[in-house]
């Protein structure tokens, strides 16, 4: 997907065993921070109106 221009930091893959709750929490934080750093996704989103960014602001 990165090849097509979707930022690679939006997609994450990890292996966490059911006993590794601490690892789960750590990865959850990492993923959230990585996505937060990128900002809102504007790519591959099926547009729902003439200007999606307006919808976002209203929702926020």
């Amino acid at each position: 997907m990165a090849h097509m221009g979707v930022e690679s930091e939006r997609i994450h893959l990890s292996w966490v065993s059911s006993a590794e709750s601490t690892k789960f929490v750590r990865v959850a934080k990492e993923v959230t921070e990585a996505v937060r750093a990128l900002g809102p996704n504007r790519r591959f989103v099926k547009s729902q109106g003439p200007d999606r960014s307006l919808n976002d602001e209203k929702a926020a």
Binding site: E9, L13, V16, V27, T32, L38, N41, F44
Partner: peptide
């Protein structure tokens, strides 16, 4: 599934096994 998530407006996708 990953694409469907993005299409519906997700900002990130996390797959974990």
């Amino acid at each position: 599934f990953a694409l469907a998530a993005l299409r519906e407006g997700a900002d990130g996708v996390w797959v974990s096994g």
